[in-house]
Design a protein around this nucleic acid. Sequence first.
DNA 1: ACTACTATCTATACATTGTTCAGATAAAAG
DNA 2: CTTTTATCTGAACAATGTATAGATAGTAGT
Lengths: 202, 202
Amino acid sequence: MPVARVRDQYHHGDLESALIATARKLTKRNGIEHLSLRKVAQEIGVSPSAAYHYFPDRDALMAAVGFSLFEELADYQERELAKITGITAKAAKERYRALGKTYFEWAIKEPHFFNLMFSEHCLVDSNSEQKREDNRAFINLTKCLDELVSTGALEERMRRHSELLSWTVVHGATSLIVSGHLDPENYESILDDLEFALGIRK
Amino acid sequence: MPVARVRDQYHHGDLESALIATARKLTKRNGIEHLSLRKVAQEIGVSPSAAYHYFPDRDALMAAVGFSLFEELADYQERELAKITGITAKAAKERYRALGKTYFEWAIKEPHFFNLMFSEHCLVDSNSEQKREDNRAFINLTKCLDELVSTGALEERMRRHSELLSWTVVHGATSLIVSGHLDPENYESILDDLEFALGIRK
DNA sequence: ACTACTATCTATACATTGTTCAGATAAAAG
DNA sequence: CTTTTATCTGAACAATGTATAGATAGTAGT
């Protein structure tokens, strides 16, 4: 299996990946609305019809991009979490905070990505591939909360109330800010409010 | 003399409203992605170019639809709030809950509307018309929280932490559920978690 | 009532888009 | 070397957003 590196070959070599990567690039620049299959093909140097051997339609390509972005986000979060070591309450709180901060900053940095991920293109049905990516993010949150409890930063009785609440607050604040309905400078104070309400010690 | 049927007239009479109303109808049925200016015009019985006398482009029409939906939602919320009378703690809690419930049910019932409202088409810049609609919803929340405090259902010290937190949780849960990343049956328990964390008495 | 004016809408045209399908080309299999 | 399969092209189609020039109707001024 020769890897085709030259663009003017008849067979591209790894067109599926190229399509996703290029669609990602154009989405990043122009947003979902202005992503055109033909421009993706043109950018790669391939005919518009070629894409249809890998994706049934434009929506499927966009969904593929969206799902790959969930992986990217989870990777990024895990890298950032790994930077914070220690089993103290302080470290646990930093990790908990980092989990939300990475989510928020990812969205602020690439709003077009965030919009794609939570658009109708990436609508998740119950037992799809994507649910596992959600699980991955959720498991990270679960671990963070467990650490908060075990280090004494979070009371045991608040533990079960914290999971969905944390996820919801972080996503909600991010969504409202990205869509312009809330000022970015409010993000930190909302997280403060959440930690205060959950009784996470300062 | 031509028959006085509204659609056969050269001048429509109130084309701007008709455009918004029809675009609303088609969006409700097919979603943002599949809304076409030409179909809107055809449905009204007018040429495609006619729309350009009222909206600079398709995006502007969609934005107009989106902003009108914010008004609709606020109207609906205020109607539902008005149904719950009394100045007891019980009534205050019901109104607080109703504020979130209407938001959630509105989105579940018409997900295409919700997606439009928080899409890039309705991106709100700081001093726009739309900010006032946000204010209207936020003022309702403010009043509900004040009532919770004055009836003794919410502690004074939690008051200032409750505003953005409540808004964020309700929107976040709704957004995650509409986009398929969270099961609808979780909504109530998330609200329970929030009320528990804020110390709102059962 | 006649004219000039303005607001409103149509007709036509164009580039771009998603998508289909028959066929070309290259790689793999025999 | 032939056959088969995977991969991509080319041309075509209908639909879309949008620009421009012109048609039509209501309105104001005389």
